[in-house]
Write a protein that binds this DNA or RNA. Structure first.
Length: 543
DNA sequence: CGGCCGTACTG
DNA sequence: CAGTACG
DNA sequence: GCCG
């Protein structure tokens, strides 16, 4: 058997199967009754691996869900059932659509179609390495700010590990070993616990968003992400938040396979309920609750509608409740705002990812046009582009000028937009600053040429003095920003796209009672410093 | 048990 | 104002 | 959902 990245996970399942009386063999022989293939294995890959032209009669080929279900239901379920089919398996049953097979949950009686001989041995297949991640950090492109920041970084190297003592609680257990000794000179009166409480904030940790292909928890993460999406579509923002945090924790614990309740619950952000779900995923390769939820066809339609620009969950649910099932339905019959109408018209355009190179091209066009309006106004491409993504969902551009205020820049924005409409680069506006001090502009742009898709493009007008806070905000990602802002508020401060403020008085519901006084807004790195967060370059802000 | 980011634009 | 959006 |  080839070494495999998933071996920890497979080992777990193998042991589970043996616990229940299965015999696992590592060579193919006529004693084999079942072949359990890892999820992504295709039928012909099994044939190839076993050097067979066909699987002998009487041997069942299934995915890992089958043994899981057998354990779940306490009996041998039918390995020919749809749920257990291996992709490419030449049987009639694979045509069955899971969405029509409504009552999935009923224990499908194990019996008849079992192979003649009793199940006594299992053959386990290795799983191919997982695919690559969507957002790949690259350090190739730098702008002036990046270089300045990196300079600061190299002169004052900060090791995140130095900030995270071994957990104060007794059961540190399987956490990614932090070296015990070393102590930064405790600035002022900061005690251990003072440093500890804030280490739970996501912004305190390096995240690249890369799905480490060696992360043994990738299957768990995948299922939890699906579950999170369900809760998101149910408008359960707090459950969604909890899932997001727990998933993020799993992603960073990429050296340990989390398979037991104790392991799981010791992770920050994972409580009793999620720990139980993780155990269920590990031992059965699925989540019962998720299977139910995915059966609801409304869920699919809801997602479709929610994908329209300007349509949130409230509107999407209304459309579903009204009985609409397609974008055409809505376009013809529903009352829509103008942005929503465009959102439907350009639905597929806006869904497409934008190659990094094209993002740069859009940025260059804006930059060039800007020069004809005001030489001193600069544009910076932000968002996932600045984080180094190889493709982006939209294009985020900051317009700024040293010493300029919002109103001066707002005029520039209006001229810029007009000019870019004239040259048929901008195709429409979606959300447009209407006041003289408006700061944001949402719309669509496209490159010249036949069939070029419209791209979502956002401008943010930023006074010269606020460039640091604006960079922080517009670089994201969203989770990172929220984490930074929450940390600020816990420290009696307030962070937004204009700056970091202190002495913010909050009433109940944390409602802001005063503005606070400005601490820093021009220097992105100083905002990190004041908040006590080790500086992280954009490509490490993917939580 | 209550909190979970903070802001800007639309209709 | 609620809803939606941005990171 | 989790956490204090």
């Amino acid at each position: 058997m080839k070494p495999c990245l998933k071996r920890a996970e497979r080992k777990m399942r193998i042991e589970k199967a043996q616990e229940y009386g299965a015999t696992v063999v590592f060579t193919f022989s006529n004693t084999v009754t079942h072949i359990i293939a890892d999820k992504d294995i295709k039928y012909n890959e099994i044939l190839e691996f076993l050097q067979l032209t066909e699987i002998p009669e009487g041997i069942a080929v299934t995915n890992p869900r089958w043994p899981g279900d057998c354990i779940r239901y306490g009996k041998l379920v039918d390995p020919k059932d749809f749920w257990y089919q291996v992709p490419g398996c030449p049987t009639e049953s694979q045509q069955r659509n899971p969405l029509q097979d409504a009552p999935i949950s009923e224990p499908i009686g194990g019996h008849s179609s079992l192979p003649s001989s009793p199940p006594s041995s299992l053959q386990v297949q290795p799983r191919p390495p997982p695919k690559q991640q969507p957002e790949t950090p690259t350090n190739s492109q730098k702008d002036a700010l990046d270089e300045a920041i990196e300079e600061c970084l190299t002169t004052t190297p900060i090791n995140i590990e130095d900030f995270l003592g071994s957990s104060s609680s007794s059961d540190t257990e399987s956490s990614p070993e932090s070296s015990p000794k070393r102590r930064k000179k405790a600035s002022s009166s900061s005690s251990n616990s003072a440093r500890d409480w804030q280490s739970h904030f996501q912004c305190m940790h390096k995240h690249t968003g890369a799905l480490n292909p060696e992360n043994p928890n990738s299957r768990t993460i995948q299922i939890l992400e699906e579950m999170m999406q369900i809760y998101d579509s149910l408008k359960d923002q707090w459950r969604t938040r909890s899932y997001r945090i727990a998933i993020s924790t799993l992603k960073s614990s990429n050296t340990t396979y989390i398979s037991t309740y104790e392991q799981a619950i010791s992770l920050p952000g994972v409580g009793d309920r999620l720990a139980k779900k993780i155990v269920e995923i590990v031992s059965t390769d699925r989540l019962q609750r998720l299977e139910y939820a995915k059966l609801d066809p409304k869920d699919q339609i809801l997602k479709l509608f929610h994908g329209i620009y300007g349509v949130g969950l409230v509107q999407a649910r209304k459309f579903v409740a009204a009985g609409y099932t397609t974008l055409e339905d809505i376009k013809k019959n529903a009352t829509l705002t103008e942005p929503q109408r465009i959102g439907i018209e350009r639905y597929s355009d806006f869904k497409q990812r934008i190659p990094r190179e094209e993002v740069k091209q859009h940025g260059d066009i804006v930059s060039t046009a800007l020069k004809t309006i005001d030489e001193k106004v600069q544009s910076h491409v932000m968002g996932s582009y600045r984080r180094g993504a190889k493709d982006c969902g939209d294009i985020d551009i900051i317009l700024t000028k040293e010493g300029a205020g919002v109103e001066e820049l707002h005029e520039v924005l209006e001229k810029l937009v007009e000019k870019l409409f004239d040259r048929k680069f901008l195709m429409c506006g979606l959300a447009i600053a209407r006041h003289d001090d408006g700061t944001k502009w949402h719309g669509a742009s496209r490159l010249e040429g036949e069939g070029k898709p419209w791209r979502r493009i956002d401008f943010l007008v930023v006074p010269g003095e606020e460039i640091g806070a604006a960079f922080l905000y517009f670089t994201g990602n969203d989770v990172f920003n929220r984490s930074m802002r929450l940390l600020a508020s816990k420290k009696g401060m307030r962070l937004n796209q204009k700056g970091l403020y202190k002495d913010v008085v909050r009433g109940k519901n944390r409602e802001k009672l005063n503005e606070g006084t400005l601490l820093e807004s021009k220097d992105e790195k100083k905002i990190f410093e004041i908040l006590g967060v080790p500086y992280r370059p954009p490509e490490h802000r993917i939580c």
